[in-house]
């Protein structure tokens, strides 16, 4: 045996940046995450050339999955042109040579921070969500060891109590994004800080979702066709943001999640948050060809 057999031949950078060992670990942990939907699987989480908290968890999963035939889309807050989305997209293309796209319909792999696209994802697509805090119990139990025990016992009483208290105090559940949801009837997970608008898209979806928190070193998954139920009381139904009737001032798109843009006169205007859907809607309005896929919401209502 020589050193040569132990190591690999020199490359300026590993394909997909991560060393083969790092990828093997992510592969093993991803398989377990898929097998136990919603369960947080700890992993070593290598450092990548981006600061922690900036999508390093999602990036490690994307770097593991990527190959030269995989078309990649990256969004942040729904936008492809957001600075960090642009930076991650550039990095992924640079380390893998994979083609990039902004069109949800064309993408094989979508890495996203805080949104699920408005066009329905298909059985062959993977959505990788960046997760700042993987622990839905953190607001009621900051200690991770205790929280883990609570998951083991399916002890979610304090979670329910917190929601109940919000209803008593404020007349409604005050949870904005990151709405805690029960996966496959067993684990409460955070769907990552997606708005409530996006949570119903996860229930029995056709695509695979992998949620990865690089800083907190945990990943979890929602396989296709898996139940995802936001925690609600029977008599207080789950409510998405009241955006169903809003119209995008730029594109005219209506019935999707919007960004509120404060105006100087004190009013607000709205822009569709899924930027590429906005672009496609503009193309269509201008008479250019643009294919808009089936959307989860129609006229602001989620299809049943």
């Amino acid at each position: 045996m020589s050193l040569e057999t132990l190591t690999k031949s020199w490359e300026p950078m590993s394909y997909g940046f991560l060393d083969a060992s790092a990828k093997r670990e992510i592969r093993r942990k991803t398989l377990k995450a898929i097998a136990v939907p919603g369960c947080q699987i700890p992993y070593a989480s290598r450092e990548v050339p981006m600061a922690r908290g900036w999508g390093t968890g999602g990036l490690q999963v994307s770097c593991t999955l990527i190959n030269p035939d995989m078309r990649v889309k990256v969004i942040d807050q729904g936008a492809d042109d957001s600075v960090n989305a642009a930076s991650i997209r550039k990095f992924l293309a640079r380390v893998s040579g994979a083609p990039v796209t902004m069109d949800t319909l064309e993408a094989d792999l979508i890495q996203s921070r805080h949104r699920i696209p408005e066009e329905k994802l298909r059985e062959d697509q993977v959505l990788v969500l960046q997760v700042p805090n993987p622990e839905p119990l953190r607001p009621v139990q900051p200690n991770m060891s205790i929280a883990r025990q609570m998951h083991a016992d399916a002890d979610y009483g304090r979670m329910w109590l917190q929601l109940y208290e919000q209803i008593v105090r404020s007349g409604r559940v005050m949870q904005g994004a990151s709405y805690p949801s029960l996966v496959n009837g067993r684990f409460v997970m955070t769907p990552s800080p997606i708005p409530r608008w996006d949570v119903p898209k996860m229930d029995m979806a056709a695509h695979l979702t992998i949620l990865s928190a690089g800083r907190e070193k945990r990943l979890h998954a929602v396989p296709p066709y898996t139940r995802v139920e936001p925690l609600v009381f029977d008599d207080v139904p789950f409510r998405v943001e009241d955006h169903g009737r809003l119209v995008c001032t730029r594109s005219g798109a209506r019935g999707f999640f919007m960004n509120e843009i404060p105006q100087e006169d004190g009013t607000s205007s709205f822009e569709v948050s899924d930027s590429e859907l906005g672009v496609k809607t503009i193309h269509r309005r201008d008479g250019d060809a643009a294919r808009i896929g089936e959307t989860w919401y129609t006229d602001g209502e989620m299809a049943q």
Binding site: Q77, G78, N84, H114, W197, E241, F257, N259
Partner: peptide
Amino acid sequence: PHYVTFQS
């Protein structure tokens, strides 16, 4: 940017 969570 955190405007989506803020909006929510």
